[in-house]
Design a protein around this nucleic acid. Sequence first.
DNA 1: TATGAATGAGAATTCATTCAT
DNA 2: GATGAATGAATTCTCATTCAT
Lengths: 193, 193, 193, 193
Amino acid sequence: MSSKVEKNKRQKENSLYDAAYNLFTTKGINDTAISDIVKNAGVGKGTFYLYFKDKYDILDRIILKKSSEVLCQAIAETKSKDFKAFEDELLYFIDYIIEYFKKDRLMLKLIYKNLSWGVLKKASKDYEEIREIYTMFEKGYANTSLPKEDIEKILFLIMELTGSISYSSIILKEPTDIDEMKPILFNTIRKII
Amino acid sequence: MSSKVEKNKRQKENSLYDAAYNLFTTKGINDTAISDIVKNAGVGKGTFYLYFKDKYDILDRIILKKSSEVLCQAIAETKSKDFKAFEDELLYFIDYIIEYFKKDRLMLKLIYKNLSWGVLKKASKDYEEIREIYTMFEKGYANTSLPKEDIEKILFLIMELTGSISYSSIILKEPTDIDEMKPILFNTIRKII
Amino acid sequence: MSSKVEKNKRQKENSLYDAAYNLFTTKGINDTAISDIVKNAGVGKGTFYLYFKDKYDILDRIILKKSSEVLCQAIAETKSKDFKAFEDELLYFIDYIIEYFKKDRLMLKLIYKNLSWGVLKKASKDYEEIREIYTMFEKGYANTSLPKEDIEKILFLIMELTGSISYSSIILKEPTDIDEMKPILFNTIRKII
Amino acid sequence: MSSKVEKNKRQKENSLYDAAYNLFTTKGINDTAISDIVKNAGVGKGTFYLYFKDKYDILDRIILKKSSEVLCQAIAETKSKDFKAFEDELLYFIDYIIEYFKKDRLMLKLIYKNLSWGVLKKASKDYEEIREIYTMFEKGYANTSLPKEDIEKILFLIMELTGSISYSSIILKEPTDIDEMKPILFNTIRKII
DNA sequence: TATGAATGAGAATTCATTCAT
DNA sequence: GATGAATGAATTCTCATTCAT
């Protein structure tokens, strides 16, 4: 296949991704029809089915893509800082994620209700950076006697807590604004590790 | 209005609640149509609209009802035990909730992603028991200098953490089974308070 | 039946008339449901069927009532002026009707599309005043040799023309405003008689 | 787009027009459902919404189409006769319309109460023939000092009168049959011009 | 590959009418 | 007479999916 054709295909697929993401975040998943997506993407209706099975197929892929993006960016940024203390490193990582969500509330809204940390772990085949989160965390626990599985569980627990608190305080403003929750959350994480 | 008519109305409304709950938990929300609900409830289609605005109206009310039920039962049971230590009391309360969810996974699946602790707080007007959760928690912190708001935030955080971990480990088995997560979760809560 | 009960019945019927008239003129006939009418009238749904067969039954009666009212008022007012010339008398009568419609556009909109002069004639059993329109017109033609039927046809024609022009110029502003159409219309009527 | 597809589209649209027209005239507008239309047209239900917004959209377009057809035919026929006198020409034109309505009462019934001369004028962009009615009329008034607007108003008035009388005498037989009304109507028009 | 016209199953919603109280 | 809860047929409208071009 000529690379021109290949490029054109990639282009169509991407415009479908973009259109779907925009519609899912602004109108909601239920209120977005495939005909909306193809209209916004500027492609024919049949074309959608060449790339995706249905609405939930493209949704799943978008969620994976977007949440990986956040995590990759967060881990890359954290690693570049060369923290001495593990606690500082972890909190910087968590804070980066929260600040990201604060700037892109629509994305948080879309991915939170549809993402589980477990799904991401499966995706870690494709994203080396996600494995690095584990590495960072395990290194932080290097001189403890905790079994590796327990360390992973603690990481899992912290990630779930972060996601949960981010969602409720950023999206629902419950029980209060994220900036007021952060000290409590960070303090809690410090106690946990 | 005669009490016979009144009783009949209550009956219809309840059979709609029950039918909707069963369908939502077994078939899922998206795959449940109003016509399914009325068919299962044994009432006419128009009757649905006499009591509810649409599918999401009945869903919201079910979620509120069911989640209040869990919490009310949990707090009642906890109070009846007359714990001496606050830590024991809180962990018993949390454990009760988790065990409830273990027995009724479908309910957990339905309510978790659609419920926020904030919504419940608003409902606490109608449910005295929910206010008692706060009372219990505040009593536990009685001899600290923490401001009342911070105590509430910590409670909120623990509730979100519990819900989040319950959902992922009971429903998704991620990162592992709930029984393996419990020690870590309880240990974490102990550290937090 | 005691007159108190009788009065109460009349009251309910009247509030149904009023409610229906208000809804028909503001929301339109198609968009007015019987449940709207009874709600606005403050009576039970079953009550409607004690007085009217269906929506079109009450509509027909309202149209007859309202259009008779206009005509009765117009003829009474005209007679009270004691015109010498028939032309002046007829034009005053027509003008009175037009001015009435100008002040109550909603009513014109409701009755025009649903009323025919013929329907009114049938109603003239109940409304002596409507017969007087004929009398006035025939008197005006007293010293001509025209057969009575032709005189009636001319009156009919003038009434249809008036209604038609009122509707288009007052409601649709077509071809122009009623005040600009009046001179042409009056001039035309003068030529006709 | 291939002309085959284009032709097929036109065909579907036309069968919808035809089916809707037949149902509107025979069953009435209120008693015609979209599902009746598509069934009679032999197309899928969704196809209707590909071409029309709703029942009133197709109705409006039908009315415009049909009323333009009558007028176009009437003016074409009139022009072909090469009348010397304007009065003869106008009356022939009016008579043609009336005879048309006599033969197609259902059409008259459908379009009259839903059509205004004003709507037609707007459509005259698409129908050159409608503009020719104005031309004919203005030519007839060529050697008078009447302003152009007044001439148009008189034409409007004559058209409204014709429509109104046609409707009541052909459809309602009020006050009498159209053939008995014609002499009076023609006489009146003669007086008006 | 890409298209978009066509489909029809199925979802939500309305509403006239009945009838037990 | 008066009520209003209950009904379910009827209607509108949507939308995922197909397939001929």
